[in-house]
Write a protein that binds this DNA or RNA. Structure first.
Lengths: 202, 202
DNA sequence: TCGCCTCACTGACTTGGGTTCAATAAGCCA
DNA sequence: TGGCTTATTGAACCCAAGTCAGTGAGGCGA
């Protein structure tokens, strides 16, 4: 007879729904912000959280739903960080907002990339979450414009502008230090926006 | 004893490596251009191609590698369609190139979206293929510029410009007909590029 | 024409990770 | 204290990716 295993199984602790959910979301941010979606297994998360795999399914019906919940939280963070006092003058608000955006990207770094890009672009729910963020920025810009002509067309171009900001942010993040300054990016982004708006409404 | 199955198993046909590979790539374009990566199973493809699953693994070591090969082909198609006669004047070449790009997007439609976006953004090999396409466009623009100041910084901005074109293309594709014309998109894209170049090198 | 040899091809098996579910027990309330 | 709800568990299930030992189509040399 060998001696019984030394490892004491941690006593099962029962948490309220809110606490456990919050814990799991935090756990998910750490995981999905580090490795891509399918390099993260449910077992990994469960083990790190000190719970059984089954419990995760008690909170989230599916792995994708879990991921969506995590992404949703990250998106909310981003929006919270980049929402600027509406009392400011439009162009100052724009610059402040861009700066906040870039600060967020810098601060989160790879986690931002992983959550925004590393996901499952195919899943409509996931894509919807990211799109909502993008549309929010489009709306923010549009709100300052006094009844532009051809608003539908302008939306398409503004989506493009958001794409420009997103892509330059990522390129900036990945480029060696000193390649381009935050100030230059803000400058160029405002310039592009002005060019688009000036063109559409002369 | 029940009667033997009626279905005649198709005689095993032996193809040359090149033919089979080409067939499988074509097959993959159809599948991955229609549904997202993980909604396509190896069994589906094998069955549609009339071969065994094992054979697919004889040609491609892994599902991802298979997907990469398909994407590579699609990317080559895109580049082939958007490579414009270098003898043309730069700004005419730009407009012609943009038009070709938009035509390609329109022609492929959902397949373009699925292949470019629906993939596994996390996989470095996959991401590399898409990035190579983007960088190619950056290089194409840079080639026309006589020794710009701060070329590294300009690259970041040009990546952003490519992002702008990509995103507006997708938004255009998804928007109801008549929202914005192809001509307007070309116009705005050139405008944005001019603004960026004019700003960097006054 | 025949036998041989290569390698395209098969199908049954293994494996890993997402998902399910019946049983268990922690904490609350009467 | 007993009973009830439900957070929690662990084992089983299932699907799809990946493996592998074997098979036969067809080309080639004699």
């Amino acid at each position: 007879m060998t001696s019984p295993p030394v490892v004491k199984k941690a006593a099962r602790t029962r948490q309220t729904v809110d606490v456990r959910r919050a814990q799991l979301i935090t756990q998910g941010m750490a995981f999905f912000g580090t490795r891509p979606y399918d390099a993260v297994s449910i077992d990994d998360i469960a083990e790190a959280a000190g719970i059984s795999k089954g419990l995760l399914y008690h909170y989230f019906p599916t792995k994708r739903d879990y991921y969506a919940a995590v992404l949703e939280t990250a998106a909310a963070d981003l929006l919270a960080q980049t929402t600027i006092d509406p009392a400011l003058a439009p162009d100052l608000r724009l610059r402040t907002g861009l700066e906040a955006y870039l600060d967020f990207v810098k601060a989160r770094g790879p986690a931002y990339v992983a959550l925004m890009r590393g996901g499952i672009g195919s899943d409509p729910v996931i894509a919807g979450i990211v799109d909502r963020v993008r549309n929010h920025y489009v709306d923010t810009v549009l709100r300052d414009l006094p009844a532009p002509p051809r608003p539908r067309a302008l939306r398409v171009l503004l989506r493009g502008w958001v794409g420009f900001v997103e892509v330059t942010s990522l390129a900036w993040l990945e480029s060696p230090a000193g390649t381009i300054s935050k100030a230059s990016l803000i400058e160029s982004s405002s310039l592009v926006l002005a060019a688009l708006l000036g063109d559409l409404a002369p």
